[in-house]
Amino acid sequence: MSDPPKRLLIVYHSQTGHTHAMAKAVLRGARRVQGVETHLKMALRAGLEDLLGAQALLLGTPENFGYMSGAMKNFLDRTYYPAQGQVNGLPYAVFISAGNDGTGALNSIERIARGYPFKPVCDPIIARGDVTTGILQQCEELGETMASGLAWGIF
């Protein structure tokens, strides 16, 4: 009997469509890898069951006022306490669409992720300004890397 497929959860929020484009690119890359189920969820629709069913997590957010989006914060707030002790070391990475430098959004996510505690496994991708084809290519590579890490048992 074969093991069930590993699950990669991509949770994102987008207002202008930039982060959505990045999330779709992450999804495209992840779906290149066999043996991994990839689920794309908007932050306000993702919940505890989604998080607990995942073996890896990608978080995508716009930078709003130097912070993550309210929807992403809402997802993290809703799942934080119920997930305690159940997601220790969950591999994760971040992608951000930023009007400024994106460091405030990144720092806020990293601070909360340490509390779960999640384990960072890939460098963040921050699109500063326009989401270029180069950024979308990086997002595809991020998705493929995360899915490959799951498929090969690296994470």
Rank of each mutant, 00 (worst) to 15 (best):
37 E>N: 12
39 H>K: 11
41 K>G: 01
41 K>I: 01
41 K>W: 06
41 K>R: 15
41 K>Q: 14
42 M>A: 14
43 A>I: 07
43 A>E: 01
44 L>N: 12
45 R>W: 01
46 A>N: 03
46 A>R: 08
48 L>I: 14
49 E>G: 10
50 D>E: 10
51 L>F: 10
51 L>E: 11
51 L>T: 10
52 L>H: 05
53 G>C: 04
54 A>H: 04
55 Q>N: 03
55 Q>W: 00
55 Q>V: 00
55 Q>P: 00
56 A>L: 06
57 L>P: 04
58 L>H: 00
58 L>A: 09
59 L>D: 00
60 G>A: 07
61 T>D: 02
62 P>T: 09
62 P>I: 12
63 E>A: 03
63 E>D: 03
63 E>F: 02
64 N>M: 12
66 G>C: 08
66 G>S: 13
67 Y>C: 08
67 Y>F: 15
68 M>P: 03
68 M>Q: 13
68 M>W: 08
69 S>R: 09
69 S>I: 07
70 G>R: 07
71 A>S: 14
72 M>G: 04
72 M>S: 05
73 K>P: 01
74 N>W: 09
74 N>P: 00
74 N>Q: 10
74 N>I: 00
74 N>K: 12
74 N>H: 12
75 F>A: 08
76 L>T: 04
77 D>T: 14
77 D>M: 07
78 R>S: 06
79 T>F: 06
79 T>M: 06
79 T>D: 07
80 Y>K: 05
81 Y>N: 13
81 Y>M: 13
81 Y>F: 14
82 P>F: 13
82 P>G: 15
82 P>I: 15
83 A>V: 09
83 A>M: 12
84 Q>T: 11
85 G>E: 12
86 Q>H: 15
86 Q>K: 15
86 Q>C: 12
87 V>K: 04
87 V>F: 06
87 V>Q: 04
88 N>W: 06
88 N>Y: 05
88 N>R: 09
89 G>S: 05
89 G>T: 11
90 L>W: 06
91 P>L: 03
92 Y>F: 15
93 A>I: 00
94 V>P: 00
95 F>L: 03
95 F>C: 02
96 I>P: 03
96 I>V: 05
99 G>C: 01
99 G>P: 03
100 N>H: 10
105 A>I: 06
105 A>M: 04
105 A>E: 01
106 L>N: 08
107 N>P: 11
108 S>G: 12
108 S>F: 09
109 I>W: 02
110 E>Q: 15
110 E>V: 09
110 E>H: 07
111 R>T: 14
111 R>I: 10
111 R>G: 03
111 R>F: 09
112 I>N: 08
113 A>G: 05
114 R>S: 08
114 R>V: 02
115 G>T: 07
115 G>M: 11
117 P>M: 08
117 P>C: 09
117 P>T: 05
117 P>V: 02
118 F>S: 06
119 K>L: 15
119 K>M: 15
119 K>I: 05
119 K>A: 15
120 P>Y: 03
121 V>E: 09
